[in-house]
Design a protein around this nucleic acid. Sequence first.
DNA 1: TGAACCATGTAAACAGTTACATGATTAA
DNA 2: TTAATCATGTAACTGTTTACATGGTTCA
Lengths: 175, 175
Amino acid sequence: MVGMSLSHVLLGLLADRSASGYDLLKRFDISLANVWPARQSQIYTELGQLSEGGLIKVAAEGPRGRKEYAITDAGLAELRRWLTETNPKKIGRNEPLARVFFLGVLTRDQAVAYLVEMAAQAARGSDKHKATDESVAWDDSGLAIYGRLALEWGHRYAAMEREWAQWAADQIATQ
Amino acid sequence: MVGMSLSHVLLGLLADRSASGYDLLKRFDISLANVWPARQSQIYTELGQLSEGGLIKVAAEGPRGRKEYAITDAGLAELRRWLTETNPKKIGRNEPLARVFFLGVLTRDQAVAYLVEMAAQAARGSDKHKATDESVAWDDSGLAIYGRLALEWGHRYAAMEREWAQWAADQIATQ
DNA sequence: TGAACCATGTAAACAGTTACATGATTAA
DNA sequence: TTAATCATGTAACTGTTTACATGGTTCA
């Protein structure tokens, strides 16, 4: 097990259903893009390593060199071990918020504009969430059930950020 | 300019006040640890590169080989350029939330326990924020003013996550 | 027949973490 | 005198991004 997190995310997606690298890439885009982004090259590399390590296997080959991967028993055990016996590291990087610390080097107008833009971005995020919610064909698989919980998190996050950014812009503007 | 983000964060801290690598390391811990963590080795390496690039300079040398860095005019210009002319990438990794997607491979009790622990963690985060707020000697520098806004963000974030996790645990438990 | 999409793979560069390594100064 | 703190630096490794490279299949 080389990559500690992307590898487990891939195991999680394959636990829901077998898929090719290409399928997984698209599934990332609709579900995990906001919490664990991954590039095409990284996904293919990681699939190769997981396969070599016996945590997934090529279950079928299709046209255009398509390889459909399925999780193995060892992979499922590893996924469960990761979820129950290791702690997620909670610290995450947040560039938009990191920038806020340094707005003091700009003019007040520029700082307010930055915060207003953050609020607008959050509002746009809300709309996008709503659209995703309506467009995704939710089945009753575990991934769909928990994916909807995560979507609700995104909804609340966007609302919180919009309100905070409006409040912050007001603090600076009326200071 | 090699590192795109840590380098700018260091410029931002040095714009507030000159400091040594050691000082910066501690300032990270109290202010930026939750939005842009950085290790000692990374900070020292980056300071070397910024210095080589003329964005900061050694303003004074003290005991034990201490080097106090100060931002240069070029560095301040670069910081402003970064803040006003480039867009922050908003996507960030969130491992605790990423794991939520895959709770379907666990038993219901295990999944609920995971969400309850997330709520507890968020509650502990709230307490820690309050403690930080009270312990930090806030001056009226730009960094202090905007740092307080970021602290309020952390406060609201923790409250949102606590409420969401409680709601989510309830959804699964009573399903 | 050409555009859109399906599908995979590698190499180089960059960013971040862990581990190692050293030594001076201060305060109890 | 010894423990805590101050202070810097490098090497190896892991993880991520960008760029390059190739070609098959489907549908209008």
